[in-house]
Design a protein around this nucleic acid. Structure first.
Length: 279
DNA sequence: ACACGCTCCTGAACGC
DNA sequence: TGCGTTCAGGAGCGTG
């Protein structure tokens, strides 16, 4: 499932195909994803040039000429496949191929999303930061604003678990279930610990670890876990090795530990952690 | 203001 | 083999 590293990998995959190119044809094969597509969605973006492919948290931001931005969220199962040298007419769309794009470079892109937890919408470029989907997002975990003091003050006074706090996109944006589990494991912090007790020294320690976990995943090309594919459609290109996620019952790999990884449920989500290492 | 549960959706995995 | 059930989860929204 796409979290920040996967979205960044998709961004890097599609940017060379899109940047500087005109979207000559856009086909929406259904009126909605998780939320309705904007009125006249295809018509509003057809004929516009893609100036830049950016990212904010887990949102892809396609800046189009005319101060329009196409926001894309991949949700749980969204993927973008590049069809090099193919026109839309040549593509036989499958049942979950919801939105198709063709560029004047002669390539096409297909947005596929079986569970339709993803979304696409349009925003005015000048008011992008105040768009409802982006306005409340916390700092980028790989950016300069995400610091020990920031995290510490965000956690102070929170009665929820540190797991829940790190999943809250207002605290830090872009983390999902997998990388929160991985970061807490590496930081040796229990996911059950109260967020307020992580404020201070533990928060200072956690920030560089979160960065490290994300950077390693990005470097590896993102995760191909389950229904996620690389942007260029190369399935099985990369298998990310998680330390705890999905490893319930397996021995903790930390030196001298070897205790079985636990799986619990927090806020209705699976949490994986080592009850020996993480305090 | 905060915390939590509910909800959307479908395919994969599991159990009988 | 086949059918029914459970689970996975991002994040907006409603409720307490």
């Amino acid at each position: 499932m796409p979290e920040l590293p996967e979205v960044e990998t998709v961004r890097r995959g599609i940017a060379p195909v899109l940047e500087g190119r005109v979207l000559t044809r856009v086909l929406a094969r259904r009126p909605d994803l998780r939320i309705p597509l904007p009125e006249n969605f295809a018509g509003r973006i057809e004929g516009r040039r893609v100036e830049h492919v950016g990212r904010r948290a887990k949102y892809l931001l396609l800046r189009l000429e005319g101060d329009l931005v196409l926001l894309i969220h991949l949700g749980m199962s969204g993927r973008i496949t590049i069809h090099p040298g193919e026109k839309l007419a040549q593509i036989e769309a499958g049942p979950h191929d919801h939105v198709l794009f063709e560029t004047d470079g002669g390539d096409s892109l297909v947005y596929n999303d079986p569970r339709r937890f993803g979304l696409m919408t349009l925003a005015e470029g000048a008011a992008l930061d105040s768009h409802p989907l982006l306005a409340k997002l916390g700092p980028e975990p790989l950016g300069n604003m995400f610091t020990g003091p920031h995290l510490s003050s965000a956690l102070k006074g929170r009665s929820s678990s540190i797991k829940a706090a790190l999943l809250d996109q207002r605290v830090v944006s872009g983390l999902g279930n997998i990388y929160v589990c991985e970061a807490l494991y590496r930081a040796r912090i229990s996911p059950r610990r109260k967020a307020s007790s992580v404020a201070g020294a533990r928060a200072e320690r956690l920030v560089p670890i979160i960065r490290q976990v994300l950077e390693e995943a990005i470097a590896a090309g993102g995760s191909t876990l389950k229904d996620y594919a690389k942007a260029d459609g190369e399935l099985g290109y990369f298998q990310h090795n998680f330390s705890v996620y999905g490893r319930a019952g397996e021995a903790c790999a930390a030196e001298g530990c070897g205790r079985p990884i636990s799986q619990i449920v927090q806020q209705g989500r699976s949490t994986f952690f080592c009850p020996g290492c993480q305090i």
